[in-house]
Design a protein around this nucleic acid. Structure first.
Length: 1045
RNA sequence: GCCCGAGUGGCGGAAUUGGUAGACGCGCAUGACUCAAAAUCAUGUAACCGUAAGGUUGUGAGAGUUCGAUUCUCUCCUUGGGCACCA
């Protein structure tokens, strides 16, 4: 007699887990003939706490999915591994002195035991571990590919420094100004860092999103993070100076409304024109203060804008030649756009706030015309309301309420403006709020300020004054006249005003027209900007992949930033050259440009200029990062080509140059071959970089404590740091920074394909066979970190011809967070953490798996509830009991039909990851078995297979009890018969005037006439139809019949 | 502030080319079995009125479109997540 509880308590589940492992049933076959399916879980960080119930949610889902597709005849790759570099193990080491590698090994063992106890069908022969030198050899190898491609560079930049973790962080690792890991407030620090040039891929990372079958929310997050914006760069001249400032704006249409300019405190203009600025000490004081503020402080103080005007100099608005003041303020960021803005207070909220605070002119250049009017409701009689409705029947009238009371809103389009105004003045204005006046308060949504007997047009600049004067005349209390116009930032509606050649255009069109105008006049041009910053890639910590580079003193020079090369041309050369180049921007070098070009150079570095023909060299020592006076002097009379942000391979054909390459420096080598005189400037500092033989293994250390000085503990191991240069054989020093945690996870799905390959990250053919990943499941917390980095690396590897697709993950699904029983996030401190071990011990793995799937939709956030597990346990017990009651030859038609329906439903639900409804369907079927009392072997053969992905242990056990020698997972998914599933009768709902009045069971192919006649004859329905004229009958086949009377 | 998402019984949740709201499970109630309890089985379970038949209301709030709205449109509220002076 089979008993489910006995099966559990006697280790029945473990028995099958061992059996499956022994028979290697879960192995994926490389190059198998069956269609392939790559089902991937985000691999876990093996923490000391072990698995929590959130982990198995995703793993169960992919397990069910994998088992289902194997039963459907697919060759499924379903691997698991460990993302084991990271701070917890290192912090534990600092506390206890235990080597991170030892803790990691222990934690992995725990995780593996727990994961195995859930009966997941992972192919363990492909297990990987990011901390294994055999694995990180290839992480390092990929880094070197990036380095050789010019995508990894060293730079001294202000970075996010976490004082708690004593390491630098990437932008993606900072949440609300705090460290994503430890919660410490992040500080700004200038530090030497290895950076990855992810910005080069910004556009492709953005456009690639479109093709992905990912949740919209994740796509939106990535789009936001990349933050592409289109706009224009506009040049503003400084009055009386041979100097201009370039600003970036997305709203060139509002240029006529630009009443001042703002520079970031770091902007080079201030130092350059220091002697022209009358209040220079005040300005310098402000700059000094801004410098010392952390990013967090800047944003915390954001509520109140600060700034200082640069007295003595003025900028000239290029569209109307008006002189406008120049300010510096930290609400303008040096790191975005050009570090300078034109301020249009009337149509930008930040500028509006700033201008209001400092009393700067606000000039409106867009007339709003959304056509929205507000009317006080209490002034409307029912008759008037009716009249209003009839008059404006095509428009929307709705009730709203705010702190002022209840109103009606009437939306009219422009064509009906006049009509509404007539109506307003004829009917309503005399009856408005408080017997006095009432006004519409937002310029953004309203055309007119409406007063008792007068309407004011807000497009007139004097509107507020007019309004107030009129109000005073009428004796209206002052506080009721406190009208404020707000800034309006819309692009879609309204027309331009006060803008000469743009007048009456919709802003969106005005943007195009203005941009074209600027380009034509040479005052500006179209430009694109991204919020995405380069990836700060080095960490000053121990437990990570060593960066496999060597600094050598013998070798003289090092290019610290491949993007830095700029070419300066003698005037004559320039003249010969410039006519043939379309995309080149030329100008004499000035400090502003120098700052932009050499922003990565730090004090003490050298800049080397090389004459490409004579090979003459000239060195400039950098005294101050923001000042390059010597350099500027030397190149004063030379033109400079625009810097090259994006080093690209030397083009092969002329077409390539003109179509693909924006930047002239890309093809400077070719030009030089033609004898053109140019100076090429590189930033150089002592020490060459060479790369190591891989893997460069992480040495053991005695102290894991970060030094806190911006160097990793590796610095303390002298015989590791000191090495020989692979380049010249002389004395050299190793790089001591390590890689961030995200490095190992940025390519791990490739390694599963070929985990033991010692000559490549993975065999090309294997990659072609298995890639891309068909289903990738994991938490949404990785939306911009792991998923963006992984896409970036994959794209680079694709460009190198290593991986076959640019996008690694075709379909991505996020499992929702599981909250504690109290509805809060599970956390140790709250004491609401549930340990899977306890649940499995009490209820078994099958019940646990099924409960996690039955909780609700996979993607939803949902609370855990231990008491609800009993429902699933009962189900499994019921199944066991009914299995014992089975009777051969006792076929039941009703049950057979329901089984077919269930086979269909469960299959469809698994494919679309709707496990909760699949289990509900299984429950309905089981309830039917109970009702029928007995089912035959033939029924069980098929039922067990559809149960098996959910409850593999019990299904396998009962399967074997049916007499099978082979595993149930070697069988095939049962088929269903469409004919059998077809219903013969359908329930129709009968409605009268939209209310349900009766239900009818009719033949599936019933005609409309017959159905309507039957419906009319129904007692319940007839009651309502009696003595009524039927105006309309609606018949929806298979659904309902509706009478309108 | 901006960008996503969600609001349905006591609870977890079903149902969307607009067509019978509340599937399935938990819980609860009553009954059977038992000396009793647990377990199990049976029945019931949105709210209100009614002994019942039946009726009315009902998917965050308000409006709109429709014969008919959880589903579509608009406004608002609450809530989860993300971004946060990105010009």
């Amino acid at each position: 007699m089979f008993n489910y509880r006995e099966f559990l308590s006697s280790g029945g589940e473990k028995k099958w887990q061992d059996e499956w492992e022994k028979s290697e049933i879960d192995r994926a076959e490389d190059f198998g003939a069956k269609p392939k399916k790559y089902v991937l879980d985000m691999f876990p960080y093996p923490s000391g706490a072990g698995l929590h119930v959130g982990h198995p949610e995703g793993y169960t889902a992919t397990d069910i999915y994998s088992r289902y597709f194997r039963l459907r005849g697919f060759n499924v790759l379903h691997p698991m591994g460990w993302d084991a570099f990271g701070l917890p193990a290192e912090n534990y080491a600092i506390k206890t002195g235990t080597q991170p590698s030892i803790t990691t090994t222990q934690n992995i063992a725990t995780f593996k035991r727990q994961i195995k106890s859930l009966g997941f069908s992972y192919d363990w022969s492909r297990e990987i571990n990011t901390t294994d030198p055999k694995y990180y050899k290839w992480t390092q190898w990929i880094f070197l590919q990036l380095f050789k491609k010019g995508l990894a560079y060293e730079a001294t930049v202000p970075i996010n420094w976490c004082p708690g973790c004593k390491t630098g962080l990437s932008n993606e690792e900072v949440k609300e100004g705090k460290c994503d890991r430890c919660g410490s407030k992040v500080e700004r620090r200038d530090m030497r860092q290895w950076m990855l040039k992810i910005t080069v891929y910004a556009d492709r990372l953005l456009s690639g999103i479109e093709s992905l079958d990912w949740p919209d929310s994740i796509k939106a997050l990535q789009r936001n993070w990349i933050g592409r914006s289109e706009g224009a760069e506009v040049k503003f001249k400084i009055a009386g100076q041979d100097r201009e400032i370039t600003v970036y704006t997305t709203r060139p249409d509002t240029l006529f409304g630009a009443t001042y300019m703002v520079l970031a405190p770091e902007h080079a203009l201030v130092t350059e024109l220091a002697d022209k600025i009358e209040n220079i000490s005040e300005v310098n004081g402000y700059i000094e203060k801004a410098k010392n503020k952390s990013d967090l402080e800047r944003t915390e103080l954001a509520k109140e804008k600060t700034g200082v005007e640069l007295k003595g100099i003025k900028a000239i608005n290029p569209v109307n030649n008006q002189e406008i003041p120049i300010w510096i303020s930290d609400y303008v960021l040096a790191s975005y756009g050009t570090g300078a803005i034109m301020a249009v207070p009337a149509h930008d909220e930040r500028d509006f706030e700033f201008a209001n605070k400092f009393g700067i002119e606000i000039k409106y250049v867009i007339k709003p015309s959304q056509g929205k009017y507000l009317i006080v409701q209490k002034s409307l009689s029912p008759e008037k309301y009716q009249e209003l409705k009839e008059k404006f029947s095509n428009n929307k009238i709705q009730k709203v309420s705010d702190s002022w009371g209840e109103f009606l809103e009437v939306f009219v389009d422009n064509s009906e403006e006049e009509k509404l105004l007539d109506f307003l003045s004829a009917n309503l204005l005399g009856l408005s709020k408080d017997g006095g006046s009432w006004y519409a308060d937002s310029m953004g949504t309203t055309n007119f300020i409406v007063m008792k007997d007068k309407i004011f047009d807000v497009s007139k600049s004097s509107v507020i004054e007019d309004f107030k004067n009129y109000g005073k005349e009428k004796g209206i209390p002052e506080e009721q006249l406190d009208v404020e116009l707000k800034c309006d930032i819309n692009v879609e509606i309204g027309g331009m005003i006060n803008s000469e050649f743009l007048n009456d255009l919709v802003p969106a069109e005005a943007i195009k027209k203005m941009t074209a105008w600027l380009e034509e006049k040479g005052l500006g041009k179209k430009a694109v900007n991204y919020k995405l910053r380069d990836w700060v890639f080095s960490r000053q910590r121990y437990w990570g992949e060593p960066i496999p580079l060597v600094h050598c003193d013998n070798c003289k020079e090092r290019i610290i930033n491949n993007s830095l090369t700029i070419n300066f041309y003698e005037q004559e050369t320039w003249n010969r050259l410039a006519s043939g180049m379309k995309t080149v921007e030329s100008r004499a070098l000035n400090p502003e440009d120098a700052e932009r070009y050499f922003g990565n150079v730090k004090s003490g570095d050298n800049l080397k200029a090389v004459n490409k023909i004579t090979k003459e060299e000239k060195y400039f020592e950098v005294k101050n990062v923001w000042q390059y006076k010597d350099l500027a002097e030397f190149f004063k009379d030379k033109e400079v080509l625009k810097k090259c942000y994006a080093p690209k391979p030397i083009p092969e054909t002329l077409e390539q140059i003109t179509t693909d390459y924006d930047y002239a420096s890309d093809y400077v080598e070719r030009i030089n071959k033609n004898g053109i005189v140019a100076w090429e400037v590189e930033a150089v500092i002592p020490g060459i970089v060479a790369w190591e033989n891989l893997p460069l293994t992480l040495p053991e250390v005695e102290k894991y404590e970060p030094t806190g000085t911006g160097e990793s503990p590796l610095v303390l191991i002298e015989d590791w740091v000191n090495t020989t240069c692979p380049n010249c054989g002389g004395k050299a020093k190793r790089e001591t920074n390590t890689m961030p945690q995200w490095a190992g996870s940025s390519w791990y799905w490739l390694r599963y394909l070929d985990p033991n390959n010692d000559s490549a990250i993975a065999d090309q053919e294997k990659m072609k066979y298995w890639l891309p990943v068909d289903l990738y499941l994991g938490g949404a917390e990785h939306a911009v970190l792991h998923l963006l980095y992984a896409r970036f690396w994959n794209m680079v590897l694709f460009d190198l011809g290593i991986v076959p697709q640019a996008e690694p993950f075709t379909k991505l699904v996020n499992q929702g967070l599981i909250l504690g029983e109290d509805g809060e996030k599970m956390s140790k401190s709250r004491g609401n953490v549930v340990n899977p071990d306890d649940i499995i011990k009490e209820w078994g793995a099958d019940a646990f798996r099924m409960y996690e799937m039955f909780m609700g939709p996979l993607e939803d956030v949902k609370p855990w509830s231990t008491k609800n597990i009993i429902g699933l346990s009962r189900l499994l017990e019921k199944i066991s009991n009914q299995f014992e009651n089975r009777k051969d030859g006792a076929k039941n038609e009703e049950l057979e039909t329901l089984l077919h329906k269930t086979i269909k439903k469960v299959g469809e639900d698994i494919e679309s990851l709707r496990f909760n409804t699949a289990i509900a369907a299984i429950m309905i079927l089981v309830n039917k078995i109970v009702e029928i009392k007995s089912a035959d072997n033939d029924f069980w053969q098929r039922f067990l297979v559809i149960l098996s992905p959910f409850a593999p242990h019990l299904s396998e056990e009962l399967w074997q009890q049916l007499g099978h020698k082979d595993s149930i997972f070697k069988s095939t998914w049962p088929t269903y018969n469409e004919e059998l599933i077809k219903e013969t009768t359908v329930d129709y709902a009968v409605q009268v005037n939209g209310k349900l009045r009766g239900k009818l069971s009719l033949a599936v192919d019933v005609g409309e006439d017959e159905a309507v006649a039957t419906a009319k004859a129904d007692v319940n329905v007839a009651k309502y139809l009696e003595g009524q004229e039927i105006k309309k009958v609606i018949f929806v086949k298979g659904k309902m019949i509706s009478f309108v009377i």
